[in-house]
């Protein structure tokens, strides 16, 4: 049984101009110990997916359909009080900006100890000892001396390490990391990615890694889900999605990334922009920009279907399609 199952998840935002569907029936699993990357451009719904899973949708956003199962039991219909112990203990969260996650008024030690004691039955001394261990584990030099320092006394990279310690210290089964390296400089990004990957592997933690950076996904994830306009366009093993994308959107996305290895005269570009939620086209949401569009794409909405090794929401792969 997968650790996390998301089935047909739909998230809506009621506005005065009608209900906007920000996530439209997305389904995926995350297995124990697996890193699932979720990529997409801004507005594709990738962060929203993470927020929906940990029950932190900003109102008026609401889960309007589908279900989310953790260890086989539903967590999408739990009350706030019942969800709170799951957050932290079962699901940890790492956000883009470490400054918003850490409370500037408390020392990092106090925040760690508080989190540990909320979820694990430990004495003050043991909890503090555990906090020091975690700081050491995330690579804070002289952790024992710095445990009583305040967040502003750490540099950006060190702060993000503290955030990771905070997310992992209750030993959750799943961590949702939303753009964990975007605010960091490139040379530090690599350190943080390596750290996150190593720690989750050691502790057998599953990770849902949300980012717009394909490079980060390529290096970190086992599988990847590519999102477009509130739906999953393609999902599959990271190597296959990156090297042999099936969905025309994924293909265009990969081609548009400039490479360090070789220089090209022109980058491949997908013309146009992702539609706004108020104007999602009929049929496949990508059809107005798709180079391989045909009649069916304009009328029917494709679900995920087998496309070689990966699964893609594209009519090219429908049984009996003559266009492959």
């Amino acid at each position: 049984m997968p650790l996390l199952e998301v089935q047909n998840l739909t998230v809506e935002f009621p506005t005065r101009r009608g209900v906007l569907r920000a996530l439209d029936g997305i389904s995926f699993d995350i297995n124990a110990g697996e890193v699932l990357g979720v990529v997409g451009e801004s507005g594709a719904g990738k962060s929203l997916t993470g927020a929906a899973i940990i029950g932190l949708l900003e109102p008026p956003g609401r889960v309007a359909g589908g279900q989310i199962l953790l260890n086989g039991s539903r967590i999408d219909n739990l009350s706030r009080d019942k969800l709170r112990p799951i957050r932290g203990k079962q699901i940890g969260a790492i956000f883009q900006d470490p400054l918003t996650t850490l409370n500037p008024l408390y020392s990092v030690g106090r925040q760690l100890v508080e989190t540990i004691q909320t979820h694990l039955k430990l004495s003050d001394r043991d909890a503090r000892e555990r906090a020091v261990q975690w700081l050491e584990e995330v690579g804070i030099p002289a952790a024992r001396q710095r445990i009583d320092a305040y967040p502003h006394e750490f540099s950006g990279g060190m702060r993000q390490r503290v955030v990771i310690a905070l997310a992992l210290c209750a030993e959750p089964r799943l961590v949702i990391a939303d753009e964990p390296t975007t605010a960091l400089d490139v040379s530090i990004q690599a350190q943080i990615i390596a750290l996150l990957r190593g720690l989750t592997r050691d502790h057998g933690t599953s990770v849902m890694l949300v980012t717009h950076d394909m490079g980060v996904i390529a290096e970190t994830a086992d599988r990847v889900a590519v999102m477009y306009a509130g739906r999953i366009a393609e999902i599959g093993p990271v190597r296959d999605v990156v090297k042999h994308p099936a969905h025309p959107y994924t293909e265009g996305l990969m081609g548009s990334i400039p490479s360090l290895e070789h220089r090209v005269e022109r980058l491949r570009q997908i013309d146009g922009a992702m539609p706004r939620l108020t104007a999602i086209p009929r049929g496949c949401a990508f059809n107005p920009r798709c180079p391989k569009v045909f009649d069916r794409c304009r009328n029917d909405r494709p679900e995920l279907m087998e496309a070689g090794v990966t699964r893609a929401a594209c009519w090219l792969y429908a049984r009996g399609a003559a266009h492959v």
Binding site: V186, D213, G215
Partner: peptide
């Protein structure tokens, strides 16, 4: 340091 597609 740069994460790259070729680094899968």
């Amino acid at each position: 340091a740069i994460p790259d597609l070729d680094m899968v």
